[in-house]
Design a protein around this nucleic acid. Sequence first.
RNA 1: CGGCGUGUGGCUCAGCUUGGUAGAGCGCUACGUUCGGGACGUAGAGGCCGCAGGUUCGAAUCCUGUCACGCCGACCA
Length: 477
Amino acid sequence: MADKKMVEAIASMEEDFAQWYTDVVKKAELIDYTSVKGCMVIKPAGYAIWELIQQQLDARFKEAGVQNVYLPMFIPESLLQKEKDHVEGFAPEVAWVTHGGLQPLQERLCVRPTSETLFCDFYKNDIHSYRDLPKVYNQWCSVVRWEKETRPFLRSREFLWQEGHTAHATAQEAQERTIQMLNVYADFCEQVLAIPVIKGQKTDKEKFAGAVATYTVEALMHDGKALQSGTSHNFGDGFARAFEIQYADRDNTLKYVHQTSWGMSTRLIGAIIMVHGDNEGLVLPPKVASVQVCIVPIQQKKEGVLEKAYELRDRLKGSFRVKVDDTDKTPGFKFAEAEMRGYPIRMEIGPKDMEAGKCVICRRDTGEKLEVALDQLEEKVGELLETIQKEMLERARAHRDAHTYEARNFDEFQKIFAEKTGFVKAMWCGDQACEDLIKEKMSVTSRCMPFAQEHLSDTCVCCGKPAKKMVYWGKAY
RNA sequence: CGGCGUGUGGCUCAGCUUGGUAGAGCGCUACGUUCGGGACGUAGAGGCCGCAGGUUCGAAUCCUGUCACGCCGACCA
């Protein structure tokens, strides 16, 4: 018995977080590895999370006036070359198609690592007049980046995402859209994924290749490392000039459009795992749980038990995502498995409950068990799911706040990162040399310059010169 | 791209040093007994030992090459 449990057990997150993550991803059956490095099978349990993310994020997009489109996955090399900073940023990690069948191609095609260039090429032909603006398009697709170091969900060579690409008449409108979408992301992370985020701007060193400004939502994982969870870029008219995307304005002069792009990816699934998971496995926020209530019948071969379980499922399934675990495993096994898979609520129903007209429900996030009268079931389950969703966000926020520190000078800064992992808030002079030195000395990077600025001191934590911004620093995934 | 490590039934691994033709536990299938925190019995199925060369009467084991995967660093959703 002890042996069996050891075989099935996962690594403890306190002892080996990386192994714990891999174990959860595999044992909760979110993915499988494949014969291509860095490319994974996203299994039903993993894909269901992505579908729930898609549905709820896309609904928010629609409210924000976004329309969905689909562009090709191939980019001719000449097109990729048009914007200089952009190519330099992505060239090292693109995959190339060199042959069509047996014939070498006249021009090789890159598999999109991101679609700015394709959208630009399209907009160049599609936009003629101010009446054609704004364009607020998005596509759900996969992209390929030939990463050297890969990890399921966090960094795979092919990953699923959405990429929004917009074109506007004015710089101001583009900037507003950039911030609007960042706010959509932040709200989505907190309200749906129960992950609190820091909103802010990337430093020039960390910004997107070809962008004027990059904004980000940064989350803190349970091990204290930071994860960039969504980005929104303002391109100004840089791409428009490179691709000659012009429109005739009301005054009958040709003007360049101003563009934005913004994206979120399957990396969010990694964030859910690393923010909420525990040593029993995955813990899913109710809003992205494909099974919200798992009913475990006890002594299911006794007359009427399974029927009662199905009856309760049928009562609940109009309002919640429910399943009955009617496999012939023992209840203990089913409990452990439901925990590994992260189902928010487990319900136990057996002969004793049926006699008493009640059932037992157990919260995945806290382990708390309570008895519920069957005639109040719908109401109680609904309340509990809301409570779980809300408290998961609160706990994640408390964890983040408890792992956010402040440094006022270099010694303090080094001491914190020598002892702890988390966000460190510190003042910065704006000079990239300081970012470089900080990275070299303690292998942390600037995560963002938060919108919510605080004045911690007058001088840069690194060089002592006058400070311009407060920056969040951290070890990043 | 550098460093380290690993490739043997679905999974975790033993066997390799000292060559003799493949094992364990778990899982899987069937039947029976079980069932409120990872049950048990009985009977079964399942392996080109990552791949390619070489040495040898004989290679999972020795040699050479190669591929893949994992972890840690440098670069990135």
